[in-house]
Design a protein around this nucleic acid. Sequence first.
DNA 1: CCAAAAGTGTTAACGCTACACCCATGT
DNA 2: ACATGGGTGTAGCGTTAACACTTTTGG
Lengths: 248, 248
Amino acid sequence: MLLCVYNTHSKNNMPNKLYKKIAKSTKKHPSKQNIKIAVDNCIFTVINDKLYILLIQMKKKPYTNKWALPGGLIGDKETSHNAALRILNEQTAVSDVYLEQLFTFDRPDRDPFGRVVSVAHFALIPNRGINLRTISKYADVKWQRVSDLPKLAYDHDEIVKYAKKRLAWKIKYTNVVWSLLPEKFTFTELQNVYETILGKRLDRRNFRKKFLALKLIKSTGKKVMRGVHRPAMTYQFKSREAKIVDIL
Amino acid sequence: MLLCVYNTHSKNNMPNKLYKKIAKSTKKHPSKQNIKIAVDNCIFTVINDKLYILLIQMKKKPYTNKWALPGGLIGDKETSHNAALRILNEQTAVSDVYLEQLFTFDRPDRDPFGRVVSVAHFALIPNRGINLRTISKYADVKWQRVSDLPKLAYDHDEIVKYAKKRLAWKIKYTNVVWSLLPEKFTFTELQNVYETILGKRLDRRNFRKKFLALKLIKSTGKKVMRGVHRPAMTYQFKSREAKIVDIL
DNA sequence: CCAAAAGTGTTAACGCTACACCCATGT
DNA sequence: ACATGGGTGTAGCGTTAACACTTTTGG
């Protein structure tokens, strides 16, 4: 099942005729404003019950070999949402993604190459055998444990900090967990995601009770072995769409 | 955050098609970007227990005489926050203001004059004898009841809709109410703000109990007459800073 | 038999909701 | 005296948090 999540602010009504009209009339804004606008993605996933974000390694000075969030300028006819999807696709080729606008970072000195305002985005993807690919612009790409982040380029430390907060909130008050999990998962796996993100242990019985009461997931009827012990029932989400539900 | 979820297996898989189109047309990073960046303010206040927002009346075509949110381009060395403050000041001359970034609206066709991305801001100000002033750029300025809004220019309807949601959330889960109230206020006034914003009536005793338990406000010791009935105690906030507290 | 995680209920404390009567004032 | 909003307490209910033993498997 392929899934794209769009927020309502990036409506899909962008007829090409309109682009042309816009292109023709762009001189009507008198200002000599010289600011570029970009997108940076904070992409989370869970691998072996640990939380990771995607980092790229930069080539250009003064950030040579520094790690940073993947990003890039927005196209003239592109929404920031689509720019974020495009950039996400450059590294991951995933399609099953939860994506939302995070915050716009605009300190005038945040980019040494000139004034660039960044519309940071926040993505959650399940770790289903994603093949990372490095594009020529970057030296490398990798998944980095969130609990062990290096100092990042630009103001990306700040963006990640903000994104972590948003993630903790999201997971508590919405059902976005589905976007971090494989299609079938055990209750322990589900709980581990919560414990990792919230940074605290939860009572197994209470967690199970509460989560089942939300009626978001159903048993698949199949059990799975996850080690030398009793097999665990697997579950799946009944529906994969964004909802606001008070979870924990 | 409002979300639309599209399943690409379904018949009407607009997003996926659109995504591919965009991905193709903007594959390479745009070297020369022609996008302006602006700020729009959604400024709330409470007057006589009713919720209002500040609107300006436009002069230029095609929006002549239409109402809109006050806004303007960001200066080359200015943060969007400061731009929002500057613009707020053009109309209101208030200093006691709660201001935060709301969302970045970036539909390519949102501005008929050219591509302008707007970092919408959200402001709450107390109604302490604010004198509105119209600047020459606009035909007029006014406070407009939120329950009775005209159709606005650009995508400002959408911005206001989003801001109203954010306000309802903020008032429930943080202590920002202080920014909508005068220094001293009665419990009924406080409750009226909540009822107006949440759009429902609240039980007087429970509201009082709950709010007092938060220990955010204290009695001033002075009573005030608000009509032909028993005088009411006035209260004030102990501290006027942003906190997250579960209120209602 | 042992280790290791899966699975399962009950109780006590707390918080929330619902609800009705007296008080202080100006006319 | 009366109309108007100000001010107050309690009881029932539902939700949450704390807590321990049995089951299933592979080695």
